[in-house]
């Protein structure tokens, strides 16, 4: 990464971290989901900065256009009671300590990892991805299709079970 790029990376990274934090902290589910949307978009930008443009667009397509919309649907169809901020019942203490420990450990380990800086990224991402999907990773790609089938059937069965 060039100097400008790494500065952009850090900047967008701060945006991502802040929106992620807001998403898990706020007591209004709608804000949480919207903040998640901002976070996902920021991560998509990070992907672009890391020269993974295809992943970046997939992130927007599937996550922001798909998952966030699904979550909003779920929220709105179950909305009546949840318009107001959630009441207590959260337990911050222990979770905060544990998350802090894990995060701290990871950060320290990352700082000490001493990985090399990546070289120049290939420009023809789409070509290479296509070759990978239909070459070395063909099996994983096909398996993904079965996973999708499973998810569709599972979601339908769960949603239908409730009608009986």
């Amino acid at each position: 990464m060039s100097g400008g790029q790494s500065m952009l990376f850090v900047l967008v990274g701060v945006v991502a971290a802040v929106s992620a934090l807001y998403a898990v902290l706020t007591r209004q589910i709608l804000r949480s989901i919207m903040s998640l949307g901002a976070f996902l978009t920021a991560v998509a930008v990070e992907f672009y900065v890391l020269a993974a443009d295809f992943v970046s667009v997939v992130q927007i397509f599937v996550y922001v256009g798909g998952v966030v919309v699904l979550m909003l649907f779920a929220l709105m169809l179950s909305a009546s009671g949840e318009r107001h901020p959630l009441a207590g019942a959260d337990r911050p203490g222990l979770g905060a300590v544990l998350a802090y420990l894990v995060g701290g450990g990871l950060v320290v380990a990352s700082l000490g990892a001493g990985l090399p800086e990546p070289g120049k990224a290939p420009a023809q991402t789409v070509d290479l991805l296509g070759r990978s999907f239909l070459g070395g990773q063909l099996f994983a790609f096909e398996l993904m299709g079965v996973v999708l089938l499973a998810a569709v059937v599972a979601a339908l069965v769960v949603a239908r079970g409730e009608r009986q």
Binding site: F54, V57, V64, V69
Partner: peptide, 19 residues
């Protein structure tokens, strides 16, 4: 590189706005 996909993906966010 991914222009066509970009064009399909970005307007998808509209659904969020409508909701």
């Amino acid at each position: 590189n991914v222009g066509v996909l970009y064009f399909l993906a970005v307007p998808g966010v509209t659904a969020v706005g409508l909701l």
